[in-house]
Nucleic acid binder design. Sequence first.
DNA 1: CCAACACTCCAATGATTATTGGAATATATC
DNA 2: GATATATTCCAATAATCATTGGAGTGTTGG
Lengths: 222, 222
Amino acid sequence: MSHSGRQVKDVLYAQVARIGKAVSSPKRLELIELLCQGEKPVERLATEAAISLKLASAHLKELRQAHLVEARKEGKYVYYRLTSEAVADFWVGIRTLAEDRLLELRAAMARLAEHVHELMPMSREDLLSQAERGEVMVLDVRPEAEFQAGHLPYALSMPLEELHKRLADLPHDKPVVAYCRGPFCLMAAEAVELLRKEGYSALRLEDGVAEWRAYGLPVETV
Amino acid sequence: MSHSGRQVKDVLYAQVARIGKAVSSPKRLELIELLCQGEKPVERLATEAAISLKLASAHLKELRQAHLVEARKEGKYVYYRLTSEAVADFWVGIRTLAEDRLLELRAAMARLAEHVHELMPMSREDLLSQAERGEVMVLDVRPEAEFQAGHLPYALSMPLEELHKRLADLPHDKPVVAYCRGPFCLMAAEAVELLRKEGYSALRLEDGVAEWRAYGLPVETV
DNA sequence: CCAACACTCCAATGATTATTGGAATATATC
DNA sequence: GATATATTCCAATAATCATTGGAGTGTTGG
């Protein structure tokens, strides 16, 4: 048994390593995070991750082979999505571990934070109840399709491009909280920068929908 | 901002990918699992993972550079350990995701299971309370050093080599539950096989200490 | 001080992997 | 049917990684 045991073990660890290999490339991680926002066609994924269509296709193939994503064809478009919410949780987990262990990452994020966003000073639960009571306004500044695929409760869809036009709709008498795809996404920071310049009281929530869900809080898909 | 944003993002994802790269090799994963059982010197890690000392040293260096493990020198030995319990949790997480997503892995584990172990039919909580009341006997069949570094409550240290000699100490009137390093480890299966051949009522618990802890249950280090 | 030991570093190798251009497929549109 | 679009497949090249041998470092024990 101990002799055949080695062969068995090698198979088992090799399988887990397939997941590791799939998430050993920065661009593949970025694709996973994008897919945490909902399903998307290859071209959109490519432009958002700033890579060529062919490279995106190749990376997606890798992810497909590791069974982390799957594809659905509709007309001439191929829509990719995560195979399970467990993949989104895994993304949150590996990112959290990296933030936790890698000083370099923490430093890079701190450099970002200096620029704009004071982060939310309150807990997620407090934010939720304040939003419920209408004491803060929560803005989802991602593209509208991502909002529709899932968003925080009481959040209003306000994609960055729209924000400029619809500034007048926002209240001056209560704080505005902006969130986007997660801690690595810069859209909410950009929104906060704009809002502050215009005299609003604005804060950034670092969470994206994946983080929010991974912490066990509700997400709406209306 | 959107232009400098790309550079910033590239740094962030690249950092997370360092963790992914560290866990993209089967042997490095096996080393992490071994280190979940407590700190160990390089040579022991090498023999247990069935690789050369030099290769073990090289892999450990990689893991060290990803800040997943750290080393402590004592005399002529270098003891490695995980930098944080979060790393053990991550190991449980990636293994669970792999089991969840990869049919090949599930098939390999099922092939194992056929051989020996009926798994525990009860929940972890039930096992804990039954062990507390003395209704089952829980055996930790790992090497004793690993038992000392952390073990399940009410468990008795009974390394595989000892088990043969100390069979007489075991009760015939209640079930014996054996566990080892986790679902990929074969020691508990071997123990169960032996115990059954000798007429005991034996079951395998698939968890190791890392799994047990990751599920929020208590671990003793006496 | 010398020998044995545990481990690491360096260099060289073959093996993978990332990336890109060009061709192929499949669908929609004219 | 012909053309444009979205995507994948294949092949080739450069870049990176795994693995091993040989040399070097630090430590114990005689």
